[in-house]
Simulated assay, not measured.
Amino acid sequence: MTLSPHFTPWTALLGGALIGLSAGLFIFLNGRIAGISGLLGSLLARQGDGRGEKLLFIVGLLVSPWIWSLVATLPESRFQAGGVALVLAGLLVGLGTRYGAGCTSGHGICGLSRLSVRSLVAVCCFMGSGFAGVYAIRHLLGA
């Protein structure tokens, strides 16, 4: 594995700080965890309160790369997997968020920062699954 020559730790640090700030502000101002799968799921289910701020949070996630592109060049995105593999991976992630009652943002960012044991177990499970999946695909299947 090699790092991109365009990688700078400062942009990664700034991005992480902005994620933490937005998650912290969301819980402070709304009293809700900023778990993206939960926010999106409640918007698609058309139920519950706080739909406006949930929608704005999701729109902010979608618009932020465009805003960043006004200031700096976005990094090139390359996928080594085919379309079928990407769709299958997306479906498996969606299934995992339903069974795990949350996603990486809900458990990994918000849950771990609150020292939640349940979130620690969830993060260990999906990180372990990711490691095992990459190992199986690259080393056992040779893809």
Rank of each mutant, 00 (worst) to 15 (best):
V87I: 09
L44S: 13
L61V: 12
G83W: 12
L86C: 09
L115M: 11
L29H: 10
I36F: 08
V93W: 06
L112P: 02
L95K: 08
P65I: 13
R32P: 09
H6A: 09
Q47N: 12
L29R: 15
L141Y: 07
L70D: 02
K54R: 15
I27Q: 14
L44Y: 09
G31L: 09
A45D: 11
A143Y: 07
P5F: 10
F7P: 07
G41P: 15
V134I: 15
F57K: 10
T104H: 02
D49Y: 01
T2V: 11
G94N: 05
L62T: 07
P9F: 00
E76M: 10
I33A: 14
L120V: 12
G130F: 04
L18E: 00
L29Q: 11
S4D: 11
S129H: 14
L120Y: 02
G15H: 05
V87A: 06
I137Q: 06
I27M: 12
L13R: 02
L62Q: 07
G130Q: 04
L92W: 05
I58G: 00
F79T: 04
I67Q: 01
L43R: 13
L21K: 12
Q47S: 15
L88K: 05
G60W: 02
A89H: 08
L14Y: 08
I27C: 07
G20V: 14
A132K: 13
A23Y: 15
G96M: 01
V87Y: 00
L86S: 07
L44C: 15
T97Q: 00
T8V: 12
R51K: 08
G60E: 03
C125G: 09
L25M: 13
G108R: 02
Q80W: 04
C103F: 10
V84Q: 04
G35M: 09
G31T: 06
T97K: 00
G35F: 12
P65W: 03
A45E: 09
A45R: 15
W10Q: 05
A17F: 15
N30H: 12
C124W: 03
A45S: 13
L115T: 10
L115K: 08
I67N: 01
V59W: 06
L140W: 11
S69V: 00
R78H: 10
V117C: 14
L39D: 08
P65A: 09
R118S: 13
E53W: 14
P5E: 06
L25F: 07
L74I: 05
G90K: 04
I67E: 00
L25Q: 08
W68Y: 09
G16K: 14
A143M: 13
T11C: 00
I27F: 09
V71R: 04
I109L: 15
S119K: 05
L21Q: 03
Y99D: 04
I33C: 11
S4W: 05
H6M: 06
P9Q: 01
I137E: 04
V84L: 15
G102M: 02
S119D: 01
L86G: 08
E53Q: 10
H107G: 11
G130M: 01
